[in-house]
Amino acid sequence: MRRIRRWVPLQRLREFSLVIILIIVVFIFGNQIDNYYTPRTFNRISSTVALITLVAVGQTMVVLTRNVDLSVGSVVGFTAYYVGRYVSKNEDIAPLMLAALAMGIGAGMGLINGLLVAYGRIPAIVVTLGTMAIYRGALVEYSDSKSVATRQLPDWIKELPQESILKFGEYELRALPAIALVAVIVFFFLLLYSSFGRRLYAIGSSPEAANLAGIRAPRMVTLAFTMCGAMAGLGGMLYLARFGTITVDAARGMELQVVAAVVVGGVNILGGSGTVLGAMLGAILIGTIEQSLIRMNINEFWKDALLGLCIIIAVTVDRILINQLTPWWSRTELQRMPEEPHAAV
């Protein structure tokens, strides 16, 4: 038992329990819906999840530093529109260049957020509440209330969501989930093993300690916001590929889904703990519930009520379990020596 405790950190246990919940949810839906275990369901769920996951990866970095970015929905909407307009005028632009453009715009918007939060010393929720409205307003001004239509787009971007990267029999891994998966893998290792990632955790766990350790928190926070913006920008391009038609209302309210995915995935909103893998699992859980309820014949209007319930249950259970388990889990042999009941805190 001691060995398990040593090799399995609490965070892994959290993610493991999310996987179990996910399997149970899929099993329940499989019993309720005919033809549930089909490639079609898988593709549908995976392309919804891909978008949320991509943005949630960026959001995770911001949340790790005790901040929150509510402007991601507007950033996704703006970049989706801008990139759509741009590509309809310059059809021969290379896909990678377009992605770089999208990420660049997103990064610029994230940089503004980051500078205001870190150097302007304004609470993140105030800044991003404001920029959420400003970026959306910028989109309305820029677009002149016209929308981007699917027929204006070049073929490759329209076919991107159908492109399959890997095939396992009838199940295929399509382009959007593949991009999201790559992002998750890259950022998973970046956050856990690079000094950049560890600094983010340090700032979130204890800003004073991080400062004393010589970490320049403002610089790191700005960087986290910039990367979050870049991921939202990439998300905007994929949003364009997936939906084709972009109005000024594109991705409105997406920030709520993204924050919900991050929180359900066990990333502490007070900073300092959580992983990108968890955020992805949270996104998968939310996306699965959402898409499956649409398939279910009972009533699609139940979707939001169940989603809210799901978030509150996930967070409450997590809070109770972690509170109960943490002392037991972190008790090492050394700490166990004095057997006073009140010493274990």
Partner: peptide, 23 residues
């Protein structure tokens, strides 16, 4: 009483209560 940050509780609430209205 549960000690969950109100940002999350009311985020879930804002999705959930709207959902009840939809039902």
């Amino acid at each position: 009483y549960m000690g969950i940050p109100s940002l999350i509780v009311t985020l879930a609430g804002s999705i959930g209560y709207r959902g009840v209205a939809r039902i």
